[in-house]
Design a protein around this nucleic acid. Structure first.
Lengths: 320, 320
DNA sequence: CCGCGTGATGGGCAAATGCTCACTCAAAGC
DNA sequence: GCTTTGAGTGAGCATTTGCCCATCACGCGG
């Protein structure tokens, strides 16, 4: 009755995709029924649904506290005095770990953003956080503020690909304070310049006050993000390892006990170290390659929350 | 690698179903791959996934503000001064409307429960709210309290089938105050007895203070829930209609202007009317049969929030 | 101890889905 | 004004999924 709005014309690009996906997943129609409903061909319906999935419009969650994961969560909380621990069901390779963890981390972020008391949220960068954001629902949460812990310019001058704060801002509409300078200075002079820029000073001050901090973690093996993304050279990595490096949070490298290293690389990081005060630092990370780094961060009480996958959690608990 | 925890034995009943569903939907594996992974047959994997879906372990949401729905939301807010309005994409029959609305309503409930400041939440009953709850994620939210607006005993003495408060309590772990008396008294004496029961007095007082109230709405046509569920007779319904009845909220019947009727049926309802103070009353309802009732409730400003479907919203806006 | 019923299992097949390919149409470029 | 290019379309076909059925195992009553 009335409402003949989409006879095939009008209707913006993936508006229709969302509608098709909705009919498919929520409405339970078959693709040919959707085709009928929307007056399009079966193939087009199929393509629309596929597109909605590809663009991440379709979010699937499994609502079942798988017993083993719960036990691991409890174990992590007890052993390392964490305030938050979430363990996603098993994932084998590093790639899978990311996909496994992302929805859990996204749910945690949504929980933070759903609070009505305004929060100041500090954010790191990296592949893991990017994957997390892709899984987040858009949620209007203008009462909160977000600040970046770390610069957003790569050594070659490009914007860091794994910058996350802008993307979360898109989803939430929250005001945000990126740290618009390079991640690392190349020498002491540059470092002083960056550190004295007014917006850097204020962002750094803000970041230290964050009510909650969400970061990834970097490993120090040959696939270290700092190396892969071109922030440090292979020589510097070797030197860090010789100095006992076990991992890094926001570019700040620490040893196996979770103590920050006294090393040139650490000196020139423009961003702040994760706060070590009352407010929680939540780390989102998983995969065998990150286990050493996680153990160190947990041991040194650098983080108060961990969102990881089943295998990583089991490994951390079994041997440390 | 390692972690051979579920070689086919252990693993509780639908624990495995959740795991299979997880691998399927989140992990993106095919059913035969899942079968390999878990060491079971392809059919079993298929059955596990189907089971997880059937049991509602799998929650799918489409995250895309379909433009038309947004416009309808804005229209509803402006026209009726609502504080919340959500419109789910089109749904034709009444049955579909329920399926369409439920996920949206569930998201709204989750938003309420995700708040950290303790809330007192008053709840109605009905098919629509039941469908909503089935779509809610389990979420630990012990800080809130819930109270029922309405009795939970059907005229035949059985527990009302569409009771919702217990079920939300299961999902949230929040303390709850059901109103454990019949919905309606049969005469003035019974009425006085029920109303004076201590737990009814306190529940009623609590309900009136609720920070937020969530209810369905009942129509007055021949398929009126009050009639179908046996609370009133066909004669009473006819009499109500003769008196101008347009709909009911929690059993309290009002006319087309949203004014409560002065009628015997209204006199013997043990529960409370939805609060008319600062705090919002959110109505979850959709389908053509409910349009008249919704218009009346909106006109009388009985509700301050509406969660409905596209067709219902369009219809309400186009003619009232 | 044996037969019978109930419920889980895997094989096989039909339905549904997703992919590739050849084609069209329209906008940009020559 | 014609050609090129690329995105979108529908047909046909391979893959995947879901369903039905015969079979099997287990438990219970005779």
């Amino acid at each position: 009755m009335a409402l003949r709005t989409l006879d095939s014309d009008d209707a913006s690009p993936d508006d229709l995709a969302a509608r098709a996906a909705w009919l498919y997943y929520v409405g339970g129609l078959r693709q040919d029924q959707i085709a009928d409903e929307l007056g399009i061909s079966r193939q087009r319906a199929q393509r629309l649904v596929a597109r909605a999935v590809a663009e991440g419009l379709v979010k699937v969650r499994i609502d079942h506290p798988i017993a083993e994961c719960l036990e691991l969560e409890r174990g992590l909380r007890q052993r390392f005095g964490l305030v938050r621990a979430r363990v996603a069901p098993r994932a084998d390779s590093g790639q899978d770990a990311l996909r496994a963890i992302a929805p859990f981390a996204a749910a945690e972020m949504e929980r933070i953003f759903a609070q009505e008391t305004p929060q100041l949220i500090a954010l790191g960068t990296g592949r893991t956080l990017r994957a997390m954001i892709d899984q987040m629902q858009t949620i209007s949460a203008g009462q909160h503020r977000m600040v970046s812990l770390i610069g957003n310019v790569a050594p070659d001058g490009s914007a860091s690909f794994y910058e996350v704060i802008m993307r979360i801002a898109d989803k939430t509409g929250a005001p945000h304070y990126p740290m618009s300078v390079p991640v690392m200075a190349r020498d002491a002079e540059e470092f002083a310049t960056y550190r004295n820029l007014p917006h850097v000073v204020s962002s750094r001050a803000l970041a230290k006050e964050a009510d909650v901090t969400v970061v990834g973690i970097g490993q120090m093996a040959d696939d270290a993000p700092l190396l892969v993304d071109g922030f440090i050279t292979a020589e510097e990595l070797a030197s860090l390892r010789a100095a006992g490096a076990a991992g890094e949070l926001g570019g700040h490298v620490f040893d196996a006990e979770g103590r920050y290293l006294d090393h040139p690389v650490n000196e020139f990081m423009v961003g702040v170290r994760v706060p070590q005060n009352q407010n929680p630092v939540i780390c989102v990370a998983g995969g065998v390659s990150k286990i050493k780094a996680l153990r160190a961060a947990l041991k040194g009480r650098l983080i108060q929350g961990l969102i990881t996958d089943e295998l990583t959690a089991a490994e951390i608990l079994s041997t440390s």
